[in-house]
């Protein structure tokens, strides 16, 4: 546990490059997606508890405003995780591109944001 805390302190306090922060965000978004997936599986299983629980979860809780906000985070996480994963694969196969890694991370972020904004607006439409 102490080692984990120490590592986290290192990660947060190190002034790395774009790659460092992209790596951190990749980890966080990965954790977020995993969390969502387990939630998703649990809520599907709730069908076994009868229609009342299932319907409450899917028609009331999941469409509530706080859930929508969380969904926006999920969209960002999925988009970023996917794009960043692509970036890592590309760099793994073309190591020479590493020279431009700072630019590539910025382009990646730009693409993610461009897709994310309309998606977020659509998601939040019912709530706003």
């Amino acid at each position: 546990m102490g080692a984990l805390v120490e590592t986290l302190r290192y990660v947060i306090s190190y002034r790395g490059t774009e790659g460092h922060w992209a790596w951190l965000l990749h980890r966080l978004s990965g954790l977020g997606i995993a969390l969502f997936l387990s939630m998703h599986i649990i809520s599907i299983f709730s069908v076994g508890l009868g229609p009342r629980v299932y319907n409450f979860l899917h028609e009331v809780l999941y469409v509530s405003a706080p859930a929508k906000v969380l969904e926006v985070f999920l969209i960002f996480g999925v988009l970023f995780h996917a794009a960043n994963g692509m970036r890592i694969i590309v760099i793994d196969f073309f190591p020479g591109l590493g020279k431009y890694q700072r630019t590539i991370v910025r382009i990646e972020l730009l693409v993610v944001i461009l897709v994310f904004i309309p998606a977020a607006i659509i998601t939040l439409q019912g709530v706003l």
Partner: peptide, 24 residues
Amino acid sequence: RTVFNCVQACPREIDVTKAIGEVK
């Protein structure tokens, strides 16, 4: 994980991540 901190840290300006990628 191609974090590139090593490239920034290297005082000899070695393209470390590129070298690692080439080894992979």
